[in-house]
Structure formats: C-alpha cells, structure tokens
Amino acid sequence: MAVELETTPVLEARALGKTLGGNRVLDAVSLALPKGCVKVLIGPSGAGKSTLLQCLNFLIPPDSGTISLEGREVNAKSKRELCALRQQVGMIFQDFNLFDHLSALENVRVALMKVKGMSKLDAGELALAELARVGLADKAALYPANLSGGQKQRVAIARALAMDPKVMLLDEPTSALDPELIGEVLAVIRDLAQNGMTMIMATHQISFSASLADEFLFMEKGRVIEAGSPAELLRRDSGSRTKAFCAKISELTGEADDMGGECKV
C-alpha cells in the first residue's frame, strides 16, 4: 500500500457515474490501478462490472467522472485522445470479439498496421511473436471459425498485448468457455500477472483470482461496496458480502471443498 501512495497510478477513475435506461449502473465509482497491481471485480450480474470496465476506455462514455492515464486526465471530447488512450489500454472481452474475416495472425496484425502505422512485415513479425507468447504460433494461419474458444481468447489476448498496453482490462475472459478450455486462458493471464502487467479483471473464477489478485473489489448496484485483499475478504469469519457471494458461487459450481480451503487463507 505504501508503494501505491508514492507513485502515480497507471490508470485512475474518479467518481464515474453512468445511467442507462433510468438505471444507475455506476454510482460514483473511483478506483486506482498502481503499476503492476492486479485488481479483481466480483459481484452479481448487473452489478456494473462490465459497464465499469468499458467506461475505463470510453467504449461506454461515462456520464460523469474522470479517467486519468499516468496522471493525465483524458479529454473525453477529443476523439484523438480517446484513440490514444485505447491504444495504451488493452481490453479482453467475454466473447472474444475476434475479427471473423481475418486469420489469427491478421487479427493481431491489423491494428499494428492501421493504428500504429507499422509495415506489414514488421507487424507480421511482432504478431507472430505475440501468438507464440500465448502458445499459438502454429495456429497463426487459422481463421476464428476454426479455433476453439480457448484459442480464440488467447488470440484476443495476443492481439491486445501486441499494442504494448500499459494496463489490461479483462471482462469475464473465461465466462464463455467450456470448463476444460478455461485452464489454458487462465494460464496466460497468470503469466501476464507474474510478468508485472497492470490488470483489472471481472470474473467469477474466485479461487483462481484469489491466488492472483492484490485486491478484490466487490460490486453491487453500481457501487464498490467492499474492497480488500482476497485473504481478508474471504476469511471464514470475515462476515463480508464477498464471502457470502463466493460461498454461493462455490456451492453452485461444486467447488465447495476447494473454496473451503481457499477461504481459510
């Protein structure tokens, strides 16, 4: 925490508010992501996790509040500043959102060429290296329709990493995957975290994220109602809303034994 105070956060949101269809989806949410830290958003569906993540790079423009990247506030009215922000903020989606008409390699390459203005050759080399990093060098020529869900998500991660982002936003990266494919994606995410990538991730993978996260943020009704280290919040006698929620998830997914162990931390 001491480190957090000394350095400027990579990404900081202040008092983000968003109303959609009369619902207060985000209610004055603030958060800061210091360099190298991993924060995990948990909470029930409709809590505003996904909206929060998409507000952080203005895919959904917030109604109020500010976003700062490395201490510089982003001017939401300037399209150039938005594009510049998004280049430095990688995003991973629940349903991958690969470009269906492009091969895995081209998926990673296209933004390098169009946005960063790299030559086809340089972009291709970098793209291949990024695919190799997620273990997919041999699938570079395949199209999304011929990749498994786990492979698609890894291509999506390579695509985001190729832009050399300062921070990654992950919106339930494994929620659309078959159980046996989740592991390969989590391994890539763990690898990222261990290499010091600054990240914020919404997920229901409680045990996994507890082993990774510096901080859990529990969201409900558009607010962060609890924040703390996973160990703190998941302690059996913590009486936290987080603990109750996680117990319910583990009950449903049959991870009860696992979670029991996890929660004793």
Binding site: N57, L59, K79, C83, A84, R86, Q87, V89, G90, M91, F93, D95, F96, N97, L98, F99, D100, H101, V110, A111, K114, V115, A156, R159, A160, M163
Partner: peptide
C-alpha cells in the same frame, strides 16, 4: 462486438468500418 474490439484497439470508426466491418 467486433466494432467494439476495433475501437478498443485504438482504431477510429472510419478505420474500423473500412478494415473490419465492410470486408465482412
């Protein structure tokens, strides 16, 4: 989601429409 992903990579809408949406 594809348009969203293109924007998230820093493409302008014109770039995204030209190289992602229209080819499909």
């Amino acid at each position: 989601g594809q348009l969203k992903a293109a924007r998230a990579l820093g493409m302008t809408d014109a770039q995204a429409i030209r190289s992602i949406i229209l080819p499909q």
